[in-house]
Design a protein around this nucleic acid. Structure first.
Lengths: 234, 234
DNA sequence: TGACGTTTCAAACGTATGTTTGAATACTGT
DNA sequence: ACAGTATTCAAACATACGTTTGAAACGTCA
């Protein structure tokens, strides 16, 4: 046994942790490419060489930051938290939406993680694959069973993809597009109360959209455009 | 009259145009910060100094690229194109979704513009404000009237914000998060036929979600979670 | 043709960044 | 207290980038 005390010392090294914390903020603010190790070490109050000494380089530091944040979140916020004993499908949907949005927009450290994940989605780096494997795929599996519960039947691959996209997109939009939202809808989407209402809106909106998918299979093809088509529930 | 022939010569300068075209691709692929003028001029087949000679610098080149693409799109694809003479609200919604998604995912030059806009939304540069003013605000106004038509009543600021977000987010998701989508849903969302079906799905999903908003004003607060709530049309 | 403005080009400049270095300092176990 | 290791630090290094420069090539009009 010499790896455990080694790792303990590793994990509790105060300099290392200060760098990790500072790096999270700077990477989230500036992105990987545009962040500088000089800004990170200034914020951490250490020397420029400490990044290479403790982590080996900027890329490795970035990986460590993401891994640490993901691990913290994994244990702090299990995906199906905040549910009663025998939740209805809509309750599960509501819990998912509320949990996701709340973590994304309110919680401090998770907000950093979300910002980093947003960046990875637009401009992937070498850690996106890890992120997909450890965070997003479990989320996808959970959401898949969730939407099928709401729709009330098993979905084909494409339908499942569409349904999950429609739910998750409404949530992530408010993180991804914040700069634009702030400009087009000034004053909207900031307070905790409004985020609560937003979660409720997305839940209701998605619930209605999903229920609509329970309806009869689409006409085989061919509906050029027109058609009043009063939306059908069976 | 000497500005017109000046500008004509300006606009039809072959070197200038080759640089603009190359810059569009490189900026879209790499982002503003990570794109290098050396790669741009290589792709354009000109010399490194030509960017500063023709445009004044990298930033000015970027502005010109976006302005040119926006102008081209403005006249090629008016926002409410493809509509019959007296369209129903759902037809208008469908036309908007189809038009937006198609331009974003299929059309070549517009795909470059979308990629640039996506980047601006995540990591704004100095031109985001112009983009908001010239492209996004008109879109927002049009969408605002559209969702109110579907819902069937005038919406308050917050409701309008929520409704527009729910519609537009489902569309942009498939551009913003392509790298992740490709990893989590391999094989999905590429072909033209599937994009057609995707547009149809988003239309139906959003239509149901919007109609649900027509229902009675939310209980003043306090609905901890439950409630099946069969979505009501007035 | 020849003078003049315009455009192209190779080379160099200045700066910012990630990384390395080697000495100085702090820490640890005996 | 001391040797040996781990950590910190200021300085320098190497490289990639946007930009500038000055001369050469080109086009145009007398």
């Amino acid at each position: 046994m010499d790896s455990t005390p080694q790792q303990d010392r590793h994990a509790s090294d105060p300099t290392r942790n200060r760098i990790l914390e500072a790096a999270g903020k700077v990477f989230a603010d500036r992105g990987f490419e545009h962040a500088t190790v000089r800004e990170i070490v200034d914020l951490a109050g250490t020397n420029i060489a400490s990044v290479n000494y403790h982590f080996g380089g900027k890329k490795e530091l970035y990986s460590e930051v993401l891994k640490k944040l993901m691990a913290e979140r994994q244990q702090a916020h299990p995906i199906d938290a905040g549910l009663t004993s025998r939740p209805t499908p809509k309750e599960k949907l509501s819990a998912f939406v509320r949990g996701y949005i709340g973590r994304m927009l309110l919680h401090e450290t998770d907000s950093v993680l979300s910002r980093l994940m947003s960046r990875e989605m637009i401009q992937p780096t070498h850690v996106l694959d890890e992120l997909v494997r450890d965070v997003m795929t479990p989320n996808k599996r959970y959401l898949a069973s969730l939407v099928e519960e709401v729709v009330g039947r098993k979905l084909g691959d494409e339908e499942q993809f569409f349904a999950i996209s429609s739910v998750i997109s409404q949530i992530m939009f408010h993180k991804h597009c914040r700069p634009v939202i702030e400009r087009i809808f000034p004053g909207q989407g900031s307070s905790a109360e409004q985020i609560e209402r937003l979660a409720e809106h997305i839940t209701d909106f998605a619930y209605a959209g999903l229920q609509q998918m329970a309806g009869p299979k689409k006409r085989p093809r061919h509906r050029p455009l027109p058609y009043p088509q009063r939306g059908g529930r069976p």
